[in-house]
C-alpha cells in the first residue's frame, strides 16, 4: 500500500498483443469485401502516381465495357471532383472522396462512398486511389485485386524506388505507350524488367488509353476475374 495516499502499489505489466496496427482498417476492408462478393461486384483498387493516366484508363474502360458490363467508380483525391466528373461524362456513375490532407483511401472511406452509389445493379467497381506510389499500398480497401498504372513518362525505375506498391499488385499497366516515339532512350523492356525485380508473378500489359492499344488484354484480364454466373444456382 502506498504510504502517501493509500492507492496501492503500481505494478509494471507487459502485455503481448501481436495484432496488426491497421486491424481496424482490415475489419472494415473485410466488411467491404464480403459486401462486394455477396453482390457479385468486382472491386479493383487502381493506384499509381498523379498523372499516371488512371482516369484516362477508366474513361477508356467505361467506353469499352459499355453495353456489356456496368461499371461505377469511386475517385479519391485530396480535393476537387474533377476525376469523377470526367468519368460521369464518360457515361458511368462516379463519386468523389475528398481526402483533405490524407494521401490514401482507407476501407471506411470506400464504405461511406458506397452510400452515394446505387445499392446494386453494377458489375465492376473501380476505386481510383489517390495519386501516390507509397501510402495507398498500405491500406486494404476490400478489393478483389490491385492494379497499378505506371506511365512510360515516369521513368523505368519507379518499381525499384517504390517496391511495396509494385510487390502488392496483381497487374501493372504500362500506360501512355503512344508517347514512346517521343521519349528517346526510353525502352519499355526496362520497365518490365524493373517490375519483375520486385514482383515474383509480374503481369504487365502495355497500354494506351489514347490509341486503344492493349485495351483488349486489359479487358480480358478483368474478364478473368469476373465470377461466371453460377449455372443452375438461381431459381
Amino acid at each position: 500500500m502506498c504510504q502517501e495516499c493509500g492507492c496501492g502499489d503500481t505494478e509494471i505489466v507487459s502485455v503481448d498483443v501481436h495484432e496488426r496496427i491497421l486491424s481496424g482498417n482490415d475489419r472494415a476492408a473485410a466488411h467491404n469485401r464480403e459486401h462486394f462478393e455477396r453482390s457479385g461486384v468486382l472491386a479493383l483498387n487502381v493506384m499509381g502516381s498523379p498523372g499516371a493516366g488512371k482516369t484516362a484508363l477508366l474513361e477508356a474502360t467505361a467506353a469499352a465495357l459499355h453495353g456489356r458490363f456496368r461499371m461505377v467508380a469511386i475517385n479519391g483525391d485530396l480535393a476537387t471532383d474533377h476525376d469523377a466528373e470526367r468519368l460521369r461524362r464518360a457515361g458511368i456513375e462516379a463519386v468523389s472522396v475528398s481526402t483533405g490532407s490524407a494521401c490514401h483511401l482507407d476501407a471506411a472511406m470506400v464504405h461511406h462512398a458506397l452510400d452515394d452509389l446505387p445499392p446494386s445493379g453494377y458489375d465492376i467497381l473501380a476505386v481510383e486511389n489517390v495519386g501516390n506510389l507509397v501510402c495507398p499500398a498500405v491500406y486494404d480497401l476490400g478489393q478483389a485485386a490491385n492494379v497499378v498504372a505506371l506511365s512510360v513518362t515516369e521513368g523505368w525505375d519507379k518499381p525499384l524506388k517504390y517496391p511495396v506498391m509494385f510487390m502488392k499488385t496483381g497487374l501493372v499497366l504500362l500506360t501512355k505507350i503512344d508517347l514512346l516515339p517521343h521519349l528517346p532512350g526510353t525502352k519499355i523492356e526496362d520497365y518490365e524488367d524493373a517490375v519483375a525485380r520486385v514482383n515474383p508473378m509480374p503481369r504487365v500489359i502495355r497500354l494506351s488509353a489514347h490509341t486503344g492499344e492493349g485495351m483488349a488484354q486489359w479487358l480480358e484480364w478483368i474478364g478473368g476475374l469476373m465470377k461466371p454466373e453460377p449455372t443452375g444456382a438461381r431459381s
Binding site: C7, D9, V15, H18, R20, I21, M167, P200, M201
Partner: peptide, 21 residues
C-alpha cells in the same frame, strides 16, 4: 518457382508495458 514474401511486410503492435495499480 516464384517465391512468396514471408517476412518484411509487418505493421504489428507486439507488446505494451504499462503501470497497473
Amino acid at each position: 518457382t516464384p517465391p512468396r514474401l514471408t517476412a518484411g511486410d509487418e505493421i504489428i503492435l507486439n507488446r505494451i508495458e504499462m503501470e497497473v495499480s
